[in-house]
Amino acid sequence: MSVDMIKEINDAIGAHGAWKLKLRTAIMMGRSDTEPATVRCDDRCALGRWLYGASLDAQTRAGKPYQVVRRLHAEFHQSAATVLEDALAGRKDQAGQRLEGEFKERSEKLVRALTKWKGELLSSASLGIGG
């Protein structure tokens, strides 16, 4: 299970990194093929489907890394949706400030939490703990 979890975490780090470019494009163009209401939902992207899906056991869900990542992931989506709302409403300056402020901060926190979780999984795997 740890190998699958590490792959999911690596994929999530890459996918969430791409959001900054998507949002910057929406700010410049004033449009997006994704609605803010959809972006706000933290269970529709690949990481969200994994976090809320059936592949994670109760022990993993009860653990602090999971709890922290799930909370930060939800905050990331809230922030991305707010940036997108501003971008689609033509509030470019406000959207840009949010992108470089709150969104960037939440994105970095999420990536740090995912990286830490991955490190803990790798340590457990190298020690032969878990499965």
Score class of each variant (00 low, 15 high):
G131P: 11
L56T: 04
V111H: 12
L56A: 06
L88R: 12
V39C: 04
L47S: 10
Q67D: 00
K104T: 10
G101I: 02
G53W: 08
F76R: 05
L72Q: 05
N10I: 07
P65Q: 05
P36Y: 09
A26I: 01
K118F: 08
V3K: 11
P36V: 03
P65W: 02
G90D: 04
V68W: 02
R61N: 08
R98W: 00
L21W: 04
A80Y: 02
S2T: 12
T38I: 06
P36N: 12
W19L: 02
E35P: 00
W19P: 00
D86R: 12
A62S: 14
Q59E: 11
S123L: 14
A89I: 02
G128C: 03
W50I: 09
R44I: 12
H16T: 06
E85N: 03
I13R: 11
L72Y: 06
S107M: 13
L21N: 13
E105W: 07
R91I: 02
D11Q: 13
E120W: 03
N10M: 10
H16V: 05
S123I: 06
A87F: 05
F76A: 03
D93C: 08
E75P: 00
I6W: 01
G63F: 03
L51W: 01
V68E: 10
A80F: 04
L23K: 06
L47T: 13
A46F: 08
R71T: 13
R44D: 07
E100R: 15
D86V: 01
R106E: 01
L88M: 14
A125N: 12
A37C: 08
R49H: 03
E120K: 08
Y52A: 10
E102D: 15
V3T: 12
L99S: 09
G17K: 11
T115Q: 14
G128W: 04
K118L: 08
V68Y: 01
Q59D: 11
G90Y: 04
D11M: 10
A95Q: 07
R40S: 08
L47P: 11
Q78N: 14
R61P: 08
M5D: 08
A58M: 04
H77T: 06
Q94M: 12
A15Q: 14
L114Q: 03
G119I: 01
A81E: 04
I129L: 09
